Simulated scan of single mutants.
Amino acid sequence: MAVWIGLTGGIGSGKSKAAAEFARLGVPLIDADAISRSLTADGGAALPAVRAAFGGALFDDTGRLKRAELRNLVFRRPEARAALEALMFPLIIDAIRVQQQHYTHARYGVIDMPLLVERPPFAALVSRILVIDVAEQTQIERVQQRSGLSADEIKRIMASQAGRLERLRAADDVVGNEGTEQALAQKIQRLHAYYQAVFPVYAE
């Protein structure tokens, strides 16, 4: 079976750009955030459990989930976040495992997982952890440029994530991303060549 790399990094680290480069190189890529969104999209498998846990007030007249209200709720109330994670994480993990089965003969694949370090159950899905690393000030500046959020708002988001040192301690591989997008792409290309060299090929 394929070796699975867990790709993670804090907000503003450039993790999504690294994931896109792996995909461009032809590496199987599973996006945990995309799976989460699909589970709570119209008709998503998680909606009945969300309604049971949080009530109908979080749904509009057409039955569509009010995502902004749910985000605000879990941001304000830690117990609501814990309840949401308890119902969502098993569904996300199951969906990832289903997707992994599509690539059993690949040399390796990447799972883009923002909460890989913060939530240990996700670690069972991967063999290695790759962290895209930048200084905290770089995170703040990049997020401000792309979103217009204040530094205090960004720091609150960062405080809800694993700290930089915690991610680095968990990492098997680290890619620094203080430079340009082109420099990041080149680093991912070199790492891809390394992974191809050290991971075995599985025959059909």
Score class of each variant (00 low, 15 high):
residue 144 Q to F: 09
residue 124 A to C: 12
residue 67 R to W: 08
residue 63 G to V: 10
residue 144 Q to W: 09
residue 172 D to Y: 00
residue 180 T to E: 13
residue 147 S to N: 15
residue 60 D to I: 15
residue 192 H to M: 02
residue 157 I to V: 07
residue 182 Q to D: 12
residue 195 Y to A: 00
residue 141 E to R: 10
residue 145 Q to F: 09
residue 53 A to E: 14
residue 8 T to E: 03
residue 160 S to I: 01
residue 49 A to H: 09
residue 44 G to W: 11
residue 130 L to W: 02
residue 23 A to T: 12
residue 106 A to S: 07
residue 70 L to Q: 08
residue 55 G to R: 02
residue 200 P to G: 04
residue 117 V to M: 08
residue 174 V to N: 01
residue 134 V to T: 06
residue 166 E to Q: 12
residue 22 F to S: 08
residue 72 N to I: 11
residue 26 G to S: 06
residue 183 A to P: 09
residue 16 S to N: 07
residue 61 D to M: 10
residue 147 S to H: 14
residue 191 L to S: 01
residue 189 Q to A: 14
residue 146 R to C: 14
residue 11 I to H: 03
residue 177 N to L: 04
residue 26 G to E: 03
residue 174 V to C: 03
residue 130 L to F: 07
residue 123 A to T: 09
residue 204 E to Y: 10
residue 151 A to G: 05
residue 191 L to D: 02
residue 166 E to C: 06
residue 140 I to C: 00
residue 26 G to L: 08
residue 122 F to H: 05
residue 129 I to E: 09
residue 126 V to C: 02
residue 56 G to L: 07
residue 85 E to S: 10
residue 76 R to S: 11
residue 168 L to K: 13
residue 65 L to M: 11
residue 112 D to G: 04
residue 30 I to C: 09
residue 98 V to W: 03
residue 191 L to Q: 10
residue 128 R to L: 08
residue 117 V to E: 07
residue 93 I to H: 11
residue 69 E to I: 01
residue 101 Q to A: 15
residue 87 L to G: 15
residue 120 P to G: 04
residue 134 V to N: 04
residue 54 F to E: 14
residue 103 Y to H: 15
residue 131 V to Y: 07
residue 122 F to M: 02
residue 48 P to D: 14
residue 107 R to Q: 10
residue 55 G to D: 14
residue 137 Q to W: 00
residue 171 A to E: 11
residue 183 A to C: 10
residue 143 V to I: 10
residue 145 Q to H: 14
residue 133 D to V: 01
residue 17 K to V: 03
residue 124 A to M: 10
residue 122 F to D: 00
residue 102 H to Q: 15
residue 32 A to K: 03
residue 31 D to F: 04
residue 154 I to E: 00
residue 95 A to G: 03
residue 204 E to C: 10
residue 131 V to I: 06
residue 160 S to Y: 02
residue 45 A to S: 12
residue 107 R to D: 02
residue 31 D to K: 06
residue 60 D to K: 07
residue 124 A to F: 04
residue 69 E to W: 04
residue 33 D to E: 07
residue 147 S to G: 15
residue 40 T to W: 13
residue 46 A to H: 02
residue 145 Q to Y: 09
residue 124 A to N: 12
residue 115 L to N: 02
residue 175 V to Q: 01
residue 138 T to P: 08
residue 50 V to W: 00
residue 105 H to F: 11
residue 89 F to T: 15
residue 23 A to D: 11
residue 152 D to V: 01
residue 176 G to Y: 15
residue 102 H to D: 15
